[in-house]
C-alpha cells in the first residue's frame, strides 16, 4: 500500500435542488511515474493512481483515467449538479490495487 495516502475533498454541505456546485479534490500520493531511476541506476517502477471517479447517489459526475503525467498530489476541480439530498462519493484507484474513498453528504438548502 502506498504510505500516507490521504484524500481531501472540498464540497458544499448544502445546495439548492438542481444547483451546480464546484468540487475540488486533492489526494496526497507520490505518483511515481516510472521515469525515475534510483541511486544505483535502476528504474523505479511506476506506481500511480490511475483512475478517479465522482458519483452522486450512484450517478456518474466525472470519471478520469490518469497517466503518470498527472502531478504528485493529484488535484481535480470540476462541477456537479445536485438534484436532491444525498452523498457525493469519491474513489481513487491505485496501481498497487488499493482503493481510496471519501464521501461527502450534501443536504438540501
Amino acid at each position: 500500500m502506498a504510505d500516507n495516502v490521504r484524500p481531501r475533498v472540498k464540497a458544499p454541505r448544502k445546495a439548492e435542488p438542481g444547483e451546480a456546485v464546484t468540487i475540488k479534490t486533492l489526494i496526497s500520493h507520490p505518483m511515481e511515474s516510472g521515469q525515475r531511476k534510483d541511486s544505483d541506476g535502476n528504474p523505479i517502477p511506476r506506481s500511480i493512481i490511475h483512475r478517479f471517479t465522482c458519483e452522486f447517489n450512484g450517478e456518474m459526475v466525472v470519471d478520469v483515467a490518469m497517466e503518470p503525467a498527472i502531478s504528485t498530489n493529484p488535484y481535480f476541480e470540476f462541477e456537479a449538479v445536485i438534484p436532491e439530498a444525498g452523498d457525493l462519493k469519491f474513489t481513487w484507484y491505485d496501481d498497487d490495487g488499493d482503493v481510496y474513498e471519501e464521501t461527502k453528504t450534501v443536504a438540501m438548502a
Binding site: 490521504r6 481531501r8 472540498k10 486533492l26 496526497s28 498530489n73 488535484y75
Partner: peptide
C-alpha cells in the same frame, strides 16, 4: 488553503 498542497502537511 484547499488548493495549497502545503496544507496537506499541516493536516498531518
Amino acid at each position: 488553503d484547499f488548493d495549497n498542497p502545503g496544507m496537506i502537511f499541516v493536516e498531518d
